[in-house]
Design a protein around this nucleic acid. Sequence first.
DNA 1: GCAAGTCAGTTGGAATTCCAACAAAAGAGG
DNA 2: CCTCTTTTGTTGGAATTCCAACTGACTTGC
Lengths: 219, 219
Amino acid sequence: MKKYLNVLKGTALFRGIEEADFEPLLSCLQVRTVRYEKGQAVFSGGERIREFGVVLTGQVQVIQDDYYGNRSILANIGPGNLFGESFACAGADALPVGVTALDASELLFIDCGRLTAPCTRACDFHNRLIQNMLRIVSMKNIALTQKIEFTSRRTTREKLLAYLSAEARRAGGSRFSIPFNRQELADYLSVERSAMSAELGKLRDSGVLHFHKNEFELL
Amino acid sequence: MKKYLNVLKGTALFRGIEEADFEPLLSCLQVRTVRYEKGQAVFSGGERIREFGVVLTGQVQVIQDDYYGNRSILANIGPGNLFGESFACAGADALPVGVTALDASELLFIDCGRLTAPCTRACDFHNRLIQNMLRIVSMKNIALTQKIEFTSRRTTREKLLAYLSAEARRAGGSRFSIPFNRQELADYLSVERSAMSAELGKLRDSGVLHFHKNEFELL
DNA sequence: GCAAGTCAGTTGGAATTCCAACAAAAGAGG
DNA sequence: CCTCTTTTGTTGGAATTCCAACTGACTTGC
């Protein structure tokens, strides 16, 4: 467990917790670490989970199989990040997604009930952990809401403008860079890459936008 | 405060908490109730909030103004339901939405820091509250993720099938009823009502679906 | 019974997106 | 410098959606 302290220190879940407090905290939570081989199933759709996972090393993939067996990739989760936390904390009876190890991976599992249960010694780092957890889920919530804001627009042009203006506001100015390449941006906004590319060109031609690679400027 | 106990008893946030525990709990949380008149602003975009709200009576509306002042309604919140909880718990620096009272309303405000802070007496209902909060935010998370699942499909037909099959799975059978009328369903799926109506007709004609009003059956 | 209102379905042309294929530009590596 | 690969931009026809308007069924209130 010691060897993973460096990973845990950098995670949002353990943010603000002193290194010295890790040992008692982890034993208080009764965490367990498990090694998975590449391709091995971590969670399967339909089961009920009480624990969520933290990736220590490697990578896992969250997959959803829809009504006729078409699977779509919801996310790839790398070191320091969580998976299954919403389902574990919501107490959902049947997991609608599956999780598979993409590489050989070390995973940490934390029981959601134990996270929120009062610990026998009133450790204040335990409270910090709860705050962090609530913040993580809330931030994800905000990100999802914002994504819906963008993708619910009807045209590619409106989706782009909604996204770009939100990025501009976030950057606090008209110049900003985005964390996507064109294909990733198209996927994020649920549009065609080529149509989006064409629309970006039109926006530039009509003088509302400058861009070069990932650098944008709204005019 | 006493007169609102009936509302609070029925809320998800206070689920599982004994009526006798309400008084000490509410004073431990240092909640405050405020009356707003119709049309009055509760939260304004740009401010930083530490408290979230619970509607006791009346109704509030969550509004987002986009880059050129076009406002869109994100939600109407009625008695027993929360608003602003994601932003308060995430510690966002600038609220991207505004909240306005739709009717004369009594609102309860709870400080997010106080919610997660350990209380001096180790009240176990306090822990129950934290669990409830985490569950609420997580469930919202799941609902948002699912909505994205549907709306990110490219065609109206695929959006419909994704939604309807998820509803069928949730109902545990092929027959189910949906909580929307046509216009609401179209808004939820971000499609045109008339195009959706046409697509529903095609699906019925091609024999994959029966429906009558809100009653559906997948074949 | 009748008028007004709401809701669902239908239709046709305009607008937009999708798709596939190709071209151009930028890097990476030898 | 050359080749291979990745990324981005462009284009044209097919497919889909959007929009506006209309019809018909049903409800409500008088």
